[in-house]
Amino acid sequence: MTPAGPRGLDLARLRERLDRERPPLTAGPLTGRLIEGGRSNLTYAVTDGHTRWVVRRPPLGHVLATAHDMSREHRVIRALHGTRVPVPAPVLLCEDDEVIGAPFYVMELVDGTPYRTAAQLAPLGPARTRDVVLRLVDTLADLHRVDPDEVGLGDFGRPEGFLDRQLRRWAKQLAASGSRELAGIDELQATLARRLPASPAPTVVHGDYRLDNVLVDAEDRIAAVLDWEMSTLGDPLTDLGLLVMYSSDLGLGDSPVSTTSGAPGHPSPAELVERYAARSGRDTSGIAWYTAFAWFKLAVILEGIHYRYTLGQTVGAGFEQIGALVPVFIEHGLTTLQEG
């Protein structure tokens, strides 16, 4: 008998579907556990005692299906599998809500470490840390080299007007959580809109590319790129700008926003941009706009979390620190534009 699974995952129903769609995949009853650390969609590790898989499903009680589109995640992983971009092998997509209560997909479980902080990277030492982060940049360039039409993703997004839509989207999000005055936020938004760059040829973009969204194996290689829920077709430099932002020194001793920049040997943001330019052949001279946009986007996200905290709608520790971070991100965005 298959034991009861973690909340949100009916292991017996999951095995039934796997046995029906992918026989003879499973060799016995399944056990599973929730993988902690996810920010949106739920991720479970599942095994039959011989083989291990990962199951992804929307959060419990989700309302907006478009925000947690399992078929979209599965599609991009399936398309990229077999390219130079390392992704887990796709196993099954199930869009039937009746199986576990929501659409889900199954992929192989890849061994590796998601490095989330400088403290976690530090034991690798300077040389290995540098290699890992530079390989992260190389993998991003490889992703942006994939021809969307060749892998069946030619209709995966609407690249025309991508940056303008992105900026408007996050401005709308800011307005929805505008519970307080934020010095400089209007100036940052207006300057970004005024200096909107012309995008290069569109590529598949990850949408949240950083070190803790990949797995690093025992040989310090990028074993798998994960968390594709924000992927689309668009401006590849938005991925690079976000990576540069997450690799910058926040100037804060203790921050709930993860960054690996303080680890000995970690390449500087300028080195990351230089590496990407060399690997991709793209013009990165306008990266300041994209990095400032990343600061703006994270400021909006953090302000939304702070707003929910003030309404008593957050659960857990550390949320009381978020509100104080928002002005820091705004200031970094303004400074980046001024220096760029």
Rank of each mutant, 00 (worst) to 15 (best):
A122V: 00
L143Q: 01
S177G: 05
F296P: 01
R194C: 05
D254K: 13
Q120Y: 05
D96W: 07
G125M: 09
Y105A: 13
L243P: 01
P148I: 08
D155T: 11
R135V: 05
Y290S: 07
L334S: 00
L14W: 08
E320K: 06
P88A: 04
H50C: 03
G49P: 06
A183L: 10
P197W: 13
G184N: 03
G207E: 06
D235L: 03
G262H: 00
V91T: 10
V54Y: 11
P114I: 10
P236N: 07
L124D: 09
A79V: 04
H62Q: 03
D149H: 12
L240R: 04
A45K: 02
D254Q: 08
D48A: 15
G152Q: 08
T314D: 05
E150I: 01
V46K: 04
R57Q: 00
R15L: 10
V76E: 14
A183E: 02
D186V: 07
G157D: 15
A12D: 10
D97G: 00
G178L: 13
P269M: 06
R17Q: 10
D48T: 15
S258K: 08
R13F: 00
P256M: 09
L252P: 06
W289F: 01
G38S: 11
T139Y: 04
I330H: 01
T314V: 13
A79S: 12
L60D: 04
P6R: 03
R17F: 02
D186Q: 13
L242P: 00
A224F: 11
A218W: 01
L25D: 11
A27Q: 12
A263G: 13
L298C: 06
A171S: 04
E108L: 04
V87F: 15
S179H: 06
E160D: 09
K172P: 03
S261Y: 07
R17N: 00
D283C: 00
H144V: 07
L302F: 04
A45G: 01
W53E: 14
D149M: 02
R210D: 05
Q321D: 12
G281W: 06
F329R: 07
E36H: 13
Y290F: 14
P327L: 12
R194N: 01
Y115G: 11
R135A: 01
A12F: 12
P23N: 11
E36K: 14
L124G: 10
H50N: 03
P114G: 06
R221I: 00
R308I: 11
D164A: 08
V99E: 06
D220R: 07
L242T: 03
Q166H: 08
T26H: 04
E73L: 14
P197M: 08
A288N: 15
P3T: 08
E331G: 02
F319C: 07
G161D: 04
L60Y: 09
P123Q: 10
P269C: 04
T260Q: 04
E274M: 15
H266Y: 06
A171V: 15
S231F: 01
L163R: 01
L143R: 04
L109G: 02
T117Y: 02
L240D: 00
A288M: 14
L25S: 01
M230A: 12
Q173E: 12
L174Y: 14
T203M: 02
L163Q: 03
A218I: 05
P88R: 04
W170T: 10
P267E: 11
A67W: 15
T113F: 01
V87M: 05
E219Y: 08
T83I: 15
L64D: 12
G281C: 07
W170L: 08
L252D: 13
L211H: 05
A299N: 09
E229Q: 07
V146P: 13
N213Y: 15
S261I: 09
